[in-house]
Design a binder for these strands. Structure first.
Lengths: 221, 221
DNA sequence: CGCTCCTTTCGAACACGTTCAATTTGGAGT
DNA sequence: ACTCCAAATTGAACGTGTTCGAAAGGAGCG
């Protein structure tokens, strides 16, 4: 655990920015650790002094993207719009932020999903980052008018985050120019989910929704 | 493209079985191509004559597992039981078959999901394998009594396959002993989905379901 | 200045996945 | 029996991610 002196921190950030630039420009697999180190004028050994692995640098990209996403989405979440509209905003800004990395999205998600590392969005290690991501949806839910039924209001943000994960997966495989198909998916799915939420007031449906919520709670831990 | 002479086919299958055994016993990452080749008494070059990459051998594992799954599930799908029961059978047998590989499931899914290769379950390359997997669910749907509403009968198998993918993802991250949490998930989710299907007769719900189906069709191609 | 201790840097070395030019093998055609 | 050629096999070599022991900095202290 290196203490964060000024010089050290500068080197570290130089490595991050260099890595992210190379990832964006030449892709994940073609970006070698040696190239990153050389471009940052340090030795490969030094790069490994700051980052445990190449995947670890990808993890750094996640964090960056997540903060960008939050910074982009939050100001757009104005109170009073319905859930569908707000959901659209959050999903679309998410895709906006990831956009430049689409070509390498494949390796991206492949690394993200392996439970070995702190990288995985589902693993217990990244619980903090996940909670922060879910809080963005919680905010959207809080802003929405009318408010979703009380019965699901608490669990809805997490459910929406799962939706976001699914959309991301779709986006990775979306080879349409500019990933327009993903945009269409978002535009159609958002109001649909909004309708579903309203529908959950119906006694029959609510019963099911309760079961689903129960299911999620029961299987967690 | 090697023609399949008897000797050649034998070598190929020896490599597959050796690789699968090593994967199962020591995990994916610790199994080296050199070890596979050595264990099969061939050179590493020969291994690459038969398989384009290490991932390609994982692809072979998929095929094997899928056929095992089918062989195990089909005889158990007896006509007349309700959809929930049949779904339970298909999902549980799926987990049964994957069981021995759970420890290496992480790398497993990580490789599966990268869109680069023929390996990916979503990529166009593995469309055939995917269709075959979906057909298993189509069979389950066909066997179920009462029959699901006509409106969704056609698309239900695909939707169930997505469910199966989700369950698999859950299973990969399930670190409970013997993956009992996944079993519980299946036991609870199957009747739930069955109920949802029945519910789709309701005019309000059907409207939503139609939208969802529309969504899936619209985004595909 | 010299000494100590920790941080930081280095680059050679290792194991791995993969490639490839060269070689061997084995069967079909004559 | 001989030739020929594609199929099959080999092992050295390349580039990669990663490790590691050793060296260089540099801050505090006498």
């Amino acid at each position: 655990m290196p203490l964060t002196t000024a010089k050290s921190e500068a080197t570290r950030e130089l490595l991050v920015s260099t890595a992210l630039r190379l990832f964006r420009d030449v892709g994940y697999e073609k970006t070698t650790m040696r190239a990153i180190a050389a471009e940052a004028n340090v030795s490969t050994g030094s790069a490994y002094y700051y980052f445990a692995s190449k995947d670890d640098l990808v993890h750094e990209l996640y964090r960056t993207l997540q903060e960008e996403h939050r910074a982009l989405a939050l100001p757009l979440l104005r109170e009073g719009r319905n859930l569908g509209e707000l959901l659209k905003v959050v999903l679309n800004t998410g895709i906006d932020v990831m956009g430049p990395y689409h070509d390498f999205g494949s390796s991206f998600i492949s690394i993200a999903i392996k439970p070995s590392a702190t990288t995985s969005p589902f693993g217990s290690e990244s619980a903090v980052a996940r909670a922060r991501a879910i809080s963005l949806f919680r905010h959207a839910v809080a802003m929405s008018r009318p408010q979703p039924p009380l019965a699901i209001r608490n669990d809805l943000p997490e459910l929406l985050w799962y939706t976001y994960m699914a959309v991301t997966l779709f986006w990775v495989y979306d080879s349409s120019p500019g990933q327009t198909r993903t945009r269409r998916l978002i535009d159609q799915a958002a109001p649909l989910i909004s309708k579903l939420v309203i529908l959950s007031r119906l006694p029959v449906v609510r019963k099911i929704v309760e079961d689903v919520v129960q299911l999620i709670h029961g299987t967690r831990r």
